Simulated scan of single mutants.
Amino acid sequence: MDWWLIYLLTGAFVGFFAGLLGIGGGLIIVPVLVTMFTVQDFPADRIIHMALGTTMATIIFTSIASLRTHHQHGAVDWQIVKNITPGIFLGTLGGATLAGSMTGQLLSIIFVIFIFYAATQMLLQFRPSPMFQLPGKIGLLLAGTVIGALSSLVAIGGGLLSVPFLTLCKIKLQRAIGTAAAIGFPIALAGTIGYVANGLMQSETLPNDSLGYIYLPALIWLASASMLTAPLGARLTHSTKTVILRTIFVVLLYGLGVRMLISLI
């Protein structure tokens, strides 16, 4: 079967929505990779780990393409990115290490819970009312640690967590989305390092062409396509309303969540 074509189409789709909504696209990529890796007879107890690791590596490229466009529109607060990044690295590395010690079933349950949470949040378009001033360096360090840890367990770029956090701290929505896209890069980088390091200890049981928990053929095609389409989505954020596209994305998330839930049961 031409797996590369499915990887390519998935990357193009995810890259577009990553740029549009300021997310890393992991909530789409992970279920797709779980299905594909299962069909390819990868080790059953490591499939979710490989899906998470490969997705994290893909988000590196998605976030670069997306943040570049948001930066061109002046929508990235680089001071926030600078102060939150140390916590992001600490939390993401810790989360990836924790994921490596979990069973595939437990990781899958955590992912399914989060995908339903994310879909519901987007469906209701929940935005916390601005209530607080942006915290100082210590506060951003702690926030980054929490965001990074949760993001690495479900392989997301952090947008679904950092956008509400920044909105709560009185950052305007478009600037919050742009800043979240930039924060996605250190999340993805630290998460990739963590999944590679933990996967290397299981290298004898993993498929050929794997680097730790990252399956390189999937990464190459996913990243190539997502880097082309992420800027398109990012530009659309600043030019049109996104209600219809957001609805399509939410429906897809619910469908993927239900499918994974059924497979777990």
Rank of each mutant, 00 (worst) to 15 (best):
D2H: 13
D2W: 12
W4H: 09
L5G: 03
I6N: 00
I6Q: 00
I6M: 01
I6A: 04
L8P: 02
T10Y: 00
T10S: 15
T10P: 02
G11A: 13
F13W: 15
G15P: 05
L20C: 06
L21M: 15
G25F: 03
G26F: 13
L27R: 04
I28H: 04
I29D: 00
I29F: 00
P31G: 06
V32D: 02
F37T: 01
T38H: 05
R46T: 10
I47L: 00
L52N: 07
T55D: 10
A57R: 01
I59M: 10
F61L: 11
F61R: 02
F61S: 01
A65Q: 02
H70A: 02
H70V: 04
H73E: 05
V76G: 02
D77H: 05
Q79L: 10
V81W: 00
K82E: 12
N83W: 13
T85E: 09
L90R: 02
L90D: 02
G91F: 03
T92L: 09
L93Y: 06
G94V: 06
T97D: 03
A99L: 06
Q105E: 14
Q105N: 12
F111Q: 10
T120D: 06
Q121C: 00
Q121W: 02
M122L: 15
R127H: 14
P128Q: 08
M131W: 06
F132Y: 15
L134V: 11
P135T: 09
P135G: 12
P135R: 09
K137L: 03
K137C: 03
L141Y: 11
A143W: 08
A143F: 08
V146D: 12
V146W: 15
I147V: 14
L153F: 07
I156Y: 04
G157C: 09
G158F: 12
S162W: 08
V163Q: 08
K170P: 04
L173C: 01
L173V: 10
L173N: 03
G178S: 11
G178K: 11
G178D: 12
A181W: 01
F185L: 15
A188L: 09
A190Q: 13
V196K: 04
M201R: 14
T205H: 13
P207F: 01
D209T: 04
G212S: 10
Y215V: 13
Y215F: 15
P217I: 02
W221G: 02
A223M: 08
M227L: 12
T229G: 10
T229N: 08
G233V: 01
A234W: 11
A234R: 07
L236G: 01
T237D: 05
V243N: 13
V243Q: 14
I244R: 14
L253I: 01
G255R: 08
G257T: 08
V258K: 04
V258Q: 05
R259V: 00
L264M: 12
